[in-house]
Amino acid sequence: MRVNFTVNGRPQEADDVWEGESLLYVLRERLGLPGSKNACEQGECGSCTVRLDGVPVCSCLVAAGQVEGREVVTVEGLADQARQRARGDARGTSLDEAKALAAGGQESPAGEGTGAFPHAALSPVQQAFIDAGAVQCGFCTPGLLVAADEMLERNPSPTDADIREALSGNLCRCTGYEKIMDAVRLAAARQGEGV
């Protein structure tokens, strides 16, 4: 079957989709967007988390046919979405956002970020994950980023218990979660400072 939907703001069409395929498979294998990860394919690990019409869901449990006409945001679209959010903000465009826009959303050379000069093409939560050491193998990272980003959108100053609850659907095997907690706290703090 054929499926038409929007991914990260761009219309996409997938052809010859087998009816049992998941949204995750279509993203990864048909649309060249492997950022969403395939760790369990049973909704237990959250590595495949994407936003479906704004809501975080496990893309492994969404049948491809169910996304017809709908909007999906993946980890690959997080930075763009953060920029749009910032643009829509009454405060206007922050310095970093302006820099990012000026750079045309292009990747600067891969390298370490710093708190003072965040990587221009990254969203605040992405930058915070790097800065706080929340990334080890990184396989859980895309799903965590989508979930954390959505939580911070809803709840800009979460308590630790709020963070833990919001991320309880995302397994990480490397970090023991402490640095992930640090990263989300850091992103919230920077967001609060308008950085």
Binding site: G43, P56, V57, C58, L61, A147, E165, A166
Partner: peptide, 9 residues
């Protein structure tokens, strides 16, 4: 029920 992602669906 399960996790936030599952509760959303």
């Amino acid at each position: 029920v399960a996790s936030p992602q599952i509760r959303n669906r």
